[in-house]
Amino acid sequence: MGAVFKREFRAFFTSPVGYVVLAALGFFAGLFFYAANILGLSSDLSPVFSSMFTFILMILPLVTMRLLSDEKRQKTDQALLTSPVSLTGIVLGKYFAALLVYSLFLLEMIVFAMIIAFQVTPDWTIFLGNCIGILLIGGFIISIGILISSLTESQLIAAIGTLAISFVLLLMDGIAYQFSNYKILTTIVNFLSISSRYSNFTSGIIAYDDIIYFVSMQALILFLTVRVLDRKRWG
């Protein structure tokens, strides 16, 4: 796993992908920080975090699109799959590399918190909750992206597929509203909704069931990715 992780992480920064993604996330976060905190004279960073939600859903597919699809297209998967490394190790290596690249963006949020701390003491628990929430939501999208990327050889299809799923997840609350007459459907859709869970974090509620939901969903999706790779060998 270590070797795959190291290579993947480095690959983000030997191509423009890592820089572009971090620059885009940084730009939007900076914009919201300026509007909400500097112009709005607020010490609360939560609006910045909650506004970033949509942008994260749109940008992360670009991080994950290459991860497995390109291996297949360039036939480098032959090196991975014929090495003494488990499929789980390969998938986790890629997942953690993407997660680390993404979490570098949190450094910027820490800088914002520092800027505020010069003036007033920010609510550190809310800030911590926001950070945990944004990491969990990012990890969730990354795991979906890796799964989609294992299904195709085309980066473009991987990106669009992940983007489509991200948008469905984003619109889940609206969908739930449409089905408000059918109790079971509403329950299912609400269970799948990530935006309401994420908004718990931005309002400072760190609930165990939300954390367990995100972690277990990621584990399940990564497990499915391993099955996809394994199935291919039996094809």
Partner: peptide
């Protein structure tokens, strides 16, 4: 193993 198309990462 050397496959027919060598499994090279071109960006390295």
């Amino acid at each position: 193993y050397l496959p027919e198309q060598p499994p090279l990462y071109l960006d390295m």
